[in-house]
Simulated assay, not measured.
Amino acid sequence: MMRAAIYVELLFRLLYEGGLRIGEAISLWVEDFDIGKNVITVRKSKTSDGENEKFMCLLRL
């Protein structure tokens, strides 16, 4: 039960604080989080530039 609560909290924080769309947040993999560089790579993005990939700062939990 506790694991599900952490997953839901992280998902909501990515959506709200990170400005991610639902599809972008759900499609994230563990490999997309680079702790050393403090970056999250969003591969399936709908950016206004027309690119399919964007980078954002990692949230502080």
Rank of each mutant, 00 (worst) to 15 (best):
Y7A: 15
E24D: 06
I6D: 06
R3C: 01
V42W: 01
K37E: 14
G19P: 09
S45Q: 02
S45W: 02
Y7C: 11
I22W: 06
I35F: 15
A25T: 06
L11W: 03
R43V: 01
S45G: 03
V42L: 00
E17Q: 14
V8S: 09
L14G: 10
N38G: 12
T41W: 00
Y16S: 12
L14R: 08
R21G: 02
K46G: 03
I6Y: 06
S48W: 14
L58F: 07
N52C: 11
G36P: 06
E51V: 03
F55L: 13
M2P: 02
M2K: 06
V8I: 09
A25Y: 04
E24H: 08
T41R: 08
L28Q: 07
S48N: 14
S27F: 05
G36I: 06
I6F: 06
L20P: 07
M1Q: 04
E53A: 04
V8C: 03
V8H: 10
S45R: 02
G50K: 01
L11H: 08
A4Q: 08
K46A: 05
G18D: 08
R13M: 15
Y16G: 13
E17G: 09
R13T: 11
C57I: 14
K54A: 11
G23L: 05
L61Q: 13
I35H: 09
D49E: 07
M2H: 09
A25L: 04
F12G: 12
R43T: 02
L28F: 04
W29I: 11
E53G: 03
E53F: 04
D34E: 08
L20T: 06
K44Y: 07
W29E: 12
A4G: 02
G19Q: 11
N52R: 12
E9C: 14
R3Q: 04
A4H: 04
D34K: 05
R21D: 00
G19F: 10
Y7M: 12
A4M: 04
E24Y: 09
L14D: 07
T41Q: 03
W29F: 12
S48R: 15
A25C: 10
V39S: 00
M2Q: 09
E17I: 15
A5L: 10
A5H: 07
R3E: 02
L61Y: 15
L28M: 08
I35T: 09
K54H: 15
R43L: 01
I22R: 08
S48M: 13
V8P: 01
D49T: 13
K46V: 08
L28T: 05
L11E: 10
I40L: 02
I6N: 08
L10Q: 10
K44A: 03
E17H: 11
E9R: 14
K37D: 12
L61S: 15
L58A: 06
F55S: 09
R43P: 01
